[in-house]
Structures are given as structure tokens and as C-alpha cells.
Design a protein around this nucleic acid. Structure first.
Lengths: 111, 111
DNA sequence: CGTCATACCTTGACGCTCTAGGTAATACAC
DNA sequence: GTGTATTACCTAGAGCGTCAAGGTATGACG
């Protein structure tokens, strides 16, 4: 009965993950939990979206990963921003602001 | 040399088109020109995105089309909102506001 | 005669998200 | 000790939206 998720993220996952990592290294599972929590559960970060996104960004050199131990003592892969990732984040934030500004302006106009 | 467009629209085309049609019927080409103009050329509406979007939404019953004559006397297909389209527009605006609010909140936080 | 603008349409590649599986280890209840 | 939930990772495939790059046809302009 559960409805499909209807593309909640609209291509914003990369920028959200990059931004999350500005607070320090985090493993994938923690990134998902943090984004969901910070959004007041408005976002659902599906693992089938998250892990491919992490590999993508690692391949592009925006983040790097090291294995370590989570807060609960389990093995976990910690990701952190590279300088290229910080630069990319700035670009993506700028692009998002442009889009949000334009779309917001059009949608809020009296119809 | 021209860079690829990098998914400027992020899945917002449907809601933008629906909103455009609240100002009255318009043909595809005019919808594209209007959105580009209103956005101060910040948006580029590719025809390969627009026309499939129009068919999609017509198939879903959100818009309907009639052939007519453009302002310049050429044959053109005029689209207009159906009641279902208006309902859908309200939903999509609400979804957009939620997403924009959450993403904006996260991205604007001091990193 | 060539070019630009209007107005429509199609195909294929690409990329992102989701669904729906899977593994493995720990923690806790019964 | 057996089942269940949680943590933490991973993958395959479908679906869908956007873009690039083509195409048709008409009319205006020089």
C-alpha cells in the first residue's frame, strides 16, 4: 500500500551530502540519519540513492573515504570533503540558490 | 565547446509549466519563451524537455490541447489547465515549498 | 537566395532516485 | 537460544526526466 516516493530529492542529494560533510567526517549511515533528523524527517534518504551518490562523488574526487569505527564500535566508512569537494559545494549552493530564487519567484506570483 | 547543461531544472519543469498556464492558455513555444523571460534568462527550456513534458501531463489529464493560431498567425497547439491540473499544481507547489525550505535551511547553516 | 524566427516533433544517451533485494555484526527480549 | 531490531554496508534493475542533436514546415527579411 505504501506509495512510491515520487522523487523527493529532485537531484539535491549531492549538495546535501557535501554540506553535511562540512561539519566533519561522517559515515554513510550517519549522513542519512543526520539529514533526516535535521530536516525534521521531511527528507528520506534511501540507501539505494545514498551509496551510489557517495561512489559517484568519490570517483569525481569531491570526497574521500577511510574505514574506521563508528560511535558504536562497528566498522564504518568515513567520508570527508576534499578541496575539490568544497569548491564543488560552493558551485552547487550557488546553482541551488539561483534555481530556488527563480522557481520561488514564479510559483509565488499571484495566479 | 559549449558545456552540457547540467540538469538545470532539477525536475521542476512540470510545476513551472502548470503555473504558467494559470495565466491562460499558451502554446508550447510561448510557454518556453515566457519561462525564460520571467526568469531573466536564468532558465533554459529545452524543447526536448518541454514537449515530452507536455505529452506526459496531457496523458495524465492535467492539461488539454487545442490547435489554434498563434499571435503571429501560425498554427500552434494551445494548452490549458484542467481541474485535475490545478489540483496537481497545488500539490506540487506544496512539495516544492517543503523541499526548498528544508534544503535552504540546511544549506544556509553556517558550515 | 540564404538566413533567422516561429512552432512543432523525435530519438538516444545519460544520470538520479527509488524499490527491493542482499550480507554481517551487535543488542535485547522472551 | 531463538527471533527481532538496529547498525552499517552494498547491488541490480526499473522508471523517469533532462539534455543534445537531429528533423519538418512556414513566413519574414534582406
Amino acid at each position: 500500500m505504501t506509495q512510491p516516493q515520487a522523487d523527493l530529492l529532485h537531484g539535491t542529494l549531492d549538495v546535501l551530502v557535501l554540506k553535511t560533510l562540512t561539519w566533519g567526517p561522517r559515515h554513510g549511515y550517519a549522513i542519512a540519519r543526520w539529514l533526516e533528523g535535521t530536516s525534521g524527517e521531511a527528507l528520506r534518504i534511501e540507501e539505494g540513492s545514498l551509496y551510489p551518490a557517495l561512489y559517484r562523488m568519490e570517483r569525481k574526487g569531491w570526497i574521500t573515504a577511510d574505514w574506521g569505527l563508528s560511535e558504536l564500535g562497528r566498522k564504518a566508512k568515513f567520508y570527508r570533503l576534499t578541496p575539490a569537494g568544497r569548491a564543488r559545494l560552493r558551485q552547487e549552493i550557488a546553482a541551488w540558490r539561483r534555481l530556488a530564487g527563480v522557481v520561488g519567484h514564479i510559483l509565488e506570483a499571484a495566479g
